[in-house]
Simulated assay, not measured.
Amino acid sequence: MPRGAGDGAARAAERLVSIGTVLTRLREEFPEVTISKIRFLEAEGLVEPRRTASGYRKFSPEDVERLLRILRMQRDHYLPLKVIREHLDAVERGGESAAAQPVPAPRRRAGEEGPWEHTATEPPEPPPPVRIGRPELLAAAGVGEGELVEWESYGLLQPGPDGGYDPEAVTVAKLVAELGRFGLEPRHLRAVKAAADREAGLVEQVVAPLRRHRNPQTRAHAEATAQELAGLSVRLHAALVRMALGTRPQ
């Protein structure tokens, strides 16, 4: 390969940055942006970073600029991602700057005051959460009514206003029963529940601004962010317990 071509490839590689660096740059203008948001935009086909041999994402300056355009169009025009993608693709095909291309005109919803909303098809609101009844919970967890009543008295499980339970209650019930076989009673597990509530509160602090956003795409992204943070919190908790016990996973 000619030396000039090799030097050009090396210079191009030097311009690539990690997702962490991209996040820092985006947060200068969009403090609420998270890594999961960037991954979400990638999954939706709005940006295509390169991948290293190890699978790490590497972003070019053009990728960063494209992300900034996407976020600005969401913030300023409340455009659905499909419209944004079509707009940016048209700009790239035409070889013109984004500023020279007209953004689809938004308008107010009928009888509504406040920020402009685009009339293009928006993603539907997420369906209501699935609930399970008390008999289904008892059957799935393999426990009796007396055990469930005791666990509820210690706040380990609680039905919702409709009398139903979150499906995750089945997992909680099974784990509480399993820990009971080692002599750990519900009263011993109140500290675990309190710690979980505090962790959930931290997650809520992060995603609450996204959930209140008028843009349905942003609200949908809030749920993905909450799930990712919850997973990271669980992994951290497990690692801290292992470290406190002085053990390592086998």
Rank of each mutant, 00 (worst) to 15 (best):
E92T: 05
E92G: 02
R93K: 09
G94M: 10
E96L: 10
A99K: 09
Q101E: 10
P104L: 14
A105R: 14
A105Y: 01
P106H: 11
P106Q: 12
R107S: 15
R109E: 15
A110V: 12
E112T: 10
E113D: 11
E113S: 14
G114C: 08
G114F: 06
G114D: 10
W116E: 13
H118G: 11
T119L: 15
T119S: 14
A120Y: 04
T121L: 13
T121P: 01
E122N: 04
E122Y: 03
E122W: 06
E122M: 14
P124F: 12
P126N: 10
P128W: 03
P129V: 07
P129Y: 08
P129A: 11
G133Y: 04
G133D: 15
R134D: 10
P135K: 14
P135C: 13
L137P: 02
L138F: 11
A139Q: 15
A141N: 12
G142A: 09
V143W: 08
G146M: 13
E147Q: 15
E147H: 14
L148W: 10
L148G: 06
V149K: 15
V149S: 13
E152W: 06
E152H: 05
S153K: 13
S153I: 06
L156K: 10
L157P: 02
L157V: 06
Q158D: 04
P159K: 06
P159V: 04
G160N: 03
G160E: 13
P161W: 08
P161L: 13
G163H: 03
G164M: 02
P167Q: 11
P167L: 11
E168T: 04
V170E: 05
T171G: 03
T171L: 12
K174Y: 00
V176E: 02
V176W: 00
A177K: 15
A177C: 04
A177Q: 14
E178L: 12
E178G: 05
E178Q: 09
G180D: 05
G180E: 05
G180T: 03
R181M: 06
F182K: 04
F182M: 08
G183W: 03
L184N: 02
L184E: 03
L184A: 12
E185S: 09
E185P: 00
E185A: 14
P186N: 09
P186F: 07
P186G: 06
H188V: 01
H188C: 04
L189H: 05
A191F: 04
K193C: 00
K193A: 14
K193T: 00
A194C: 00
A194D: 10
A194F: 02
A196C: 00
A196P: 00
R198G: 00
E199F: 00
A200T: 02
A200N: 03
G201E: 02
L202M: 05
V203S: 01
V203Q: 01
E204A: 09
E204Y: 03
E204P: 02
Q205P: 00
A208S: 11
L210E: 06
R211M: 07
R212Y: 05
